[in-house]
Design a protein around this nucleic acid. Structure first.
Length: 266
DNA sequence: ATGACTGGCAGCGCCAGA
């Protein structure tokens, strides 16, 4: 089974690219982030025409997550916990998570809050959101240590200095701060391994490149999109790739798709 | 060339992204 995650930065603005990529990439399950639309605006029929089912969770022009699958899409949930933090005044629920069982794997498409700045309320929200995700994930594994769970998406954290093109450039910024890295580390320690890294070693291996300043052709990016697998899922991983070809050309998302190959369940 | 931000929405600037 081939499982992918991709922050598409608007599914409507680049629907043709998204569909073409799915069609040629032979992926069974795709987790999308930043669809940037409400449910009623999501172009569901185009995915159905390709032979995929879709579950989308979008509440406004911001955020938005989806799961696209041709191997089943069951038990859809739009919240990994009853206590997912909300943001703003008044506090509003955001569309940053959707989970479903696809081909026997519990897949969560996640769009972790950006944080905006270290002194911004959004940063507090980001840390709380990650903490709640870790708590939920640890709970699932406590209930079933052999659970097949994939936490995938845009984590908006660069776990190590090697995961950004220039550490000094990001000094004092989000994505690289110790508290964020600690939360990401807690998720890994809870049993969710970065299953892509062994197949996509660094340095200089990224999943995101800013649209400005020629960051992509200069190979100045960040590694912030991940597939984190539970122990039982990680055992099945036989390969992984970051498709940086898809970052090229007119109309590309600023994130590249990340694909994981899973061996048949033993 | 892999190329000098982009998307959405209100409305022809502004916020958000990271």
């Amino acid at each position: 089974m081939r499982l992918a995650t991709w922050n598409v930065n608007s599914v409507r603005a680049r629907l043709d690219r998204v569909l073409a990529w799915i069609d040629r990439s032979d992926v069974d399950v795709v987790a999308l982030q930043e669809t940037k639309c409400k449910d009623e605006q999501f172009p569901e029929q185009a995915f159905l025409d390709l032979g995929y089912e879709v579950a989308h969770h979008g509440l406004s022009q911001w955020n938005g997550v989806a799961l696209v699958s041709r191997v089943g899409l069951e038990d859809v949930s739009t919240s990994f916990s009853a206590d997912v933090p909300h943001f703003g005044e008044p506090a509003v629920a955001e569309a940053r998570a959707i989970g479903a069982t696809c081909g026997g794997v519990r897949v969560w498409s996640l769009y972790v809050p950006n944080g905006r700045g270290l002194d911004d309320p959004h940063y507090v929200y980001k840390l709380a959101w990650l903490q709640e995700l870790r708590s939920a994930g640890a709970g699932w594994l406590a209930q079933d240590p052999r659970a097949q769970v994939a936490l995938v998406g845009d984590f908006n954290v660069a776990p190590t200095d090697e995961d950004v093109w220039d550490v000094d450039f990001f000094a004092g910024a989000t994505h690289v701060s110790e508290p964020e890295r600690a939360e990401f580390g807690s998720l890994v320690d809870a049993g969710f391994a970065d299953v892509v890294r062994p197949y996509a070693p660094g340095p200089g291996t990224y999943t995101y490149w800013d649209y400005t300043q020629l960051r992509f052709p200069k190979r100045q990016g960040m590694r912030i999109d991940f597939v984190l697998g539970s122990p039982a899922l990680a055992e099945r991983v036989s390969g992984a790739t970051i498709d940086r070809e898809e970052r090229k050309g007119k109309g590309a998302s600023d994130h590249a798709p990340v694909i994981v190959e899973l061996a048949p369940n033993a």
